[in-house]
Each structure stands twice: as structure tokens, then as C-alpha cells.
Design a protein around this nucleic acid. Structure first.
Lengths: 193, 193
DNA sequence: CTGCCACTAGAACGAACGCTCTACTCAGAA
DNA sequence: TTCTGAGTAGAGCGTTCGTTCTAGTGGCAG
């Protein structure tokens, strides 16, 4: 029965976990719920992830990592000016969040906060994701002529401000925080010119 | 036995809930754990909060709201220049987070994200908290001569950036994100002068 | 054809969950 | 003194949790 589904079982499990954890976080997402959503059995789940929920969640966070990294890179490749690219990111984040009915925010933030200091595997994966995203922004800024230190610090604030604004937008069900964040980040970046 | 504890049972329950939810979030915090920590029984808990976990959590978020509001106001009262006040806030947030062993971040963020779109009582209390904090910053900026629109937008970004930076600091167990955020916010505010 | 093994299937386990329920204590009102 | 009701106390409800376990199934290497 290995060919009943278009994509492999392991991949289906990871995607379902990532999607569920994006919406509900780590604690509220049960393994049975995952196996139902992924159309896989508990047996398959433990076959691929013998480490159980922690291991699966860490893998799901890594999945969210590359997903958002691709989103970032796409925007930065498309738009030349980094300040403008950040505005574009904020706008797309806002429309995506709105279209999901305010439930699909950052794919990893909720799990990252829940696991901080409690589930090391997940926390480490989340920390690596933030680092990855930051490095994408940093490289873009360096290519645009920013100094090493400025680029590194700006990358921190670009990622963290977008993150904070998306959280605020989700809780308030209003995309204004994201649009404002985009404009302010552009202004901040411009102030280094 | 009403006088066995220094402070009332209801207050003890709310404080314990707030503290536990700050560290572990909404889902991971059980009612039995709360009653143990608060030295109160399940009976007392349901006596004061007949709405159960949701009602208690919403009250705990309100508790975190006023707690952080007092922190903000204290910093803004102490430091005249709003840009400098934000730097002070970031610094104190960083040292507090570090001293707690990276477990006591924003008292409500985790619960806010977990409850977004799932537990309306908690989500509403969290949205109100963010609004409250933002209004404290806005008032400070207005008093310092900022225009209405600039003050409102800056208040959004000040709160959301601090929020995002604190989250990043907690996950990475490194307070650099907060220090950088403080400096960048000061620079952003100064750019309006 | 046979045997192997990656993978599927889901019943069952003990623990923990949120919540309900009855019984009780005891300060103060009548 | 009796009564009342706010508050305390915790056993136990049904459910779900993460996890374990045994019993398969079926494609493919030998």
C-alpha cells in the first residue's frame, strides 16, 4: 500500500504536524489528531519518529523553518531595495494571515514559546530557524552595501519586529500592526544610508 | 481557616495561574498544578471561577496586563526622553529574563498565541492588554510632542518590537535581541524629530 | 518461490486532563 | 443558640493524553 498516497507517509505526517502546530501550538496538538489529519496510523507515526512527540515536533519546526525561509528569499530576490522588500514581506504576511481567518501566523512561534526551557529538541530547532531567517536578511543587507555589524543588528530587528507584529495582528485580528511594522522597518533601514 | 494565608485565596490562585502561564503557557498548565501552587483546593478554584479554566486564564492574563503596564509606566515616569526610556525598558526586560533563567518572558504572549482563534475569553483579554500597553507608550510620545498619528504608529511598533525581541531572546537564551531592539527603537523615534 | 523487512494497523495501558459532586467547617447574622 | 452561606476539601466522573505492543501486509531481493 505504499503508493496509495501521492506523497510519502513521513512527509504527510510532518506537514500535518507543522500545520496543526502553526494553528494550535505544541501542547494542544495531539498525536491522534495528527495521525487523523495526515491519514496515517499511530504505528506509522512511531515508526518514522521513534522519539515520539518531541522528535516529531522538532521536525515540524524544521519544516516551518524552510517554508518561511523560502518565503523570505523569494521576496528578497524579487525586490532589489531591502527596505522595500521588507515592506513587501509585511504586506504578504498580512494578507496571508487575514485570508487564513487569523489562524495561520508564524509557523513556529507558538511552539517555540511553549517549548522554551521545557522541550529542548523543539527549542533548539526554533532557535536555529530564527538564526536562519536572520542570516537571509543579513546577506541581503550586506549585498546592498551595509556594513557587517549594521547588517547583523538590522537583521535581528527586521525578523523580530515582523514576528512581534504578526503576533499582535493575529491576536487583535487586524493587519495594521504588520503594515506599520513594514513602514517603520523601511524607515529604520533607510536611516543607515 | 480564612486567615491562614496572608493574602486571599482568590488572589493567590490568580497569581499562581499568571506565573505558571507565563512559564508554560495555557495548555501545559493544569488546574491541579495551579491549585497545588496556590495552596488552594479545586473546590476553591471552581468557587471563585465557575467558568473553569478559560475564565481563570482570562483573569490571569488581566493580571499580567496590569503587571507589565506598571513596569512600562514606571520606566516612562522615570526617564524623560521617550527614546531613552525605551532603551531602559529593553535593558530591564533583558536582565529580568536572564535572571529568571530565560523562563519568565512576557507574562501573556504564549497564552495569547495559544488561545488565538480558540479560546475567545483569553484572546480578548490579551488583545486588551496589548492595547493598554500601546496606549501607555502613545500617551508618553504625545506628551513629548509627537503628533497623534506618529505617536499611535510608533506605539504599535515599540510594543510589538519589544515583544518580538523578548520572544527571540527567550528562545535563543541570549539577551542581545532585546538590547538591539532598544537601540533601534530609539533610533526610529529619534528619526521623527 | 520464499523470506525478509519496511511499513501499516489499531487495541490497550497508565497517567493526567477539566470538571462535578457531596460533605464539611466556621464566622457572623438573627 | 441556631441558622446560613461563603469557602474548603478531595474523591471520582468521563475523556483524552502519549506511548507501547502485537499482528499483520505486501513489494522486492535472493
Amino acid at each position: 500500500m505504499r503508493t496509495r498516497h501521492a506523497i510519502g507517509t513521513r512527509e504527510r505526517i510532518v506537514r500535518a504536524t507543522s500545520r496543526l502546530m502553526q494553528r494550535q501550538g505544541y501542547e494542544a496538538t495531539g498525536l491522534k489528531e495528527i495521525s487523523r489529519e495526515a491519514e496515517a496510523t499511530l504505528g506509522s507515526l512511531y515508526h518514522f519518529f521513534p522519539g515520539g512527540k518531541k522528535e516529531l515536533a522538532a521536525e515540524a519546526v524544521r519544516h516551518g523553518d524552510v517554508e518561511f525561509a523560502e518565503f523570505l528569499r523569494a521576496a528578497f530576490d524579487r525586490v532589489d531595495d531591502p527596505a522595500e522588500a521588507v515592506v513587501v514581506c509585511a504586506r504578504e504576511l498580512a494578507s496571508g494571515l487575514r485570508e487564513s481567518g487569523w489562524v495561520e501566523g508564524c509557523p513556529i512561534t507558538t511552539a517555540a514559546l511553549e517549548s522554551a526551557g521545557r522541550v529542548p529538541e523543539v527549542q533548539k530547532a526554533a532557535a536555529a530557524a530564527f538564526e536562519n531567517w536572520r542570516s537571509i536578511v543579513r546577506v541581503k543587507l550586506r549585498e546592498s552595501g551595509f556594513g557587517e555589524d549594521d547588517a547583523e543588528e538590522l537583521a535581528h530587528t527586521v525578523v523580530n519586529t515582523l514576528e512581534g507584529a504578526e503576533m499582535a495582528a493575529q491576536v487583535a485580528q487586524d493587519d495594521a500592526p504588520l503594515h506599520i511594522a513594514g513602514r517603520h522597518l523601511a524607515r529604520l533601514i533607510a536611516s543607515y544610508r
